[in-house]
């Protein structure tokens, strides 16, 4: 399943995932955004892994933001946000 969201004035986020037993699985987040450090992308996708497929956009965004916060201050997202990833993920599911 595939969902996309483009932040106005920013970049495109694409989310590919599967739903297995009502949960998000094999989540891939990609796009033409900028992110430092690059390894933070695995943390963003990982934050959605196993989450109930009916979780709200706000819930998905909160999980991503919390996972990124655990990485510390040196994480920079440019052209997208946890909200943008959450919206693309919701669109993939629905």
């Amino acid at each position: 399943m595939h969902g996309e969201y483009k932040t106005p004035g920013g970049k495109l986020v694409r989310v590919d995932l599967e739903v297995v037993d009502g949960r998000l699985h094999r989540v891939q987040v990609s796009g033409d955004f900028f992110l430092e450090p690059p390894e933070a992308l695995d943390v963003i996708a990982g934050a959605l892994e196993g989450v109930p497929a009916d979780a709200s956009e706000e819930e998905l965004a909160r999980r991503i933001a919390e996972a990124l916060a655990r990485l510390g201050d040196d994480v920079h997202l440019l052209g997208f946000s946890p909200d943008a990833v959450a919206r693309a993920a919701r669109r993939a599911v629905s």
Partner: peptide, 9 residues
């Protein structure tokens, strides 16, 4: 392609 882009997409 960019570092965060999906190849096939």
């Amino acid at each position: 392609i960019g570092r965060f882009q999906s190849l096939r997409n």
